[in-house]
Nucleic acid binder design. Sequence first.
DNA 1: TACCTAACCTATTCAATGA
DNA 2: TCATTGAATAGGTTAGGTA
Length: 240
Amino acid sequence: MEWSSSNPIPFIPRNAQSPFSFLYNYNTVDPYLYPPGGSDMKHQMLQQASLPMMDLSQIDYDSNNQDKKKRLTSEQLEALENSFQEEIKLDPERKMKLAQELGLQPRQIAVWFQNRRARWKAKQLERLYDALKQEFDAVFREKQQLQEEVLALRAILKEHGSKRQAQVSATGYSDMTGEDTTVESTSVNAIRSSNNVSYQAVATPSSAVAAGECNYMLNYDGAAVPTQSYYNWAGLPSYP
DNA sequence: TACCTAACCTATTCAATGA
DNA sequence: TCATTGAATAGGTTAGGTA
């Protein structure tokens, strides 16, 4: 059965004399709105009925109760979605207007918007996670490439060190003509080329957005200094 | 300043639904 | 039958109004 004004759920109390009759059909008669009294209304009514405070969750619901959860119709969902796209927050005027137009209780409109905002936020977090993961993967790959480059450079240095040592031993002086620098520079370029390391800023538009969102969501001021662990992780030579 | 109220958020429950 | 979805609830927080 659909939930709409054209097909309303008849309000048939389980027992009109029962002090608990207000618990039934509250999809039709919203206990949080009618009458006004806030979220303590159930307890207030229990007290008015001269009954002790009790755990309402323990009350035995009738198997024929009328508060079965009903899915909203596609028309109702479309209207609610359109309204949500216009404005994520719901002002009282819009809530009443939507309730009237869609044949729903204002409380249902408010609940739908609350759940919709929760789903929207979860989706945003999911996107942020994906963006950060991509960023991490890219940085991790670059770190591996740099480590390989460091190893290669160390090997070159070791090789040239051995040659120089042999030259000093043979001639008694060191050759500082700059030829070695040219060799090393060429070697570095070759290694970098083979590793396809660009040496540009890693931040991509998506990662920049992700970082911005991350800073916003985590209330992060963005002024952090690299930590000791970062230097260790990055394989950097020294920690300032 | 304490209290009240309304609106909101997060976590959870549970009926409806589809594979 | 079971996993997923989403409407609804519970309980907590916060902001604004008021005595």
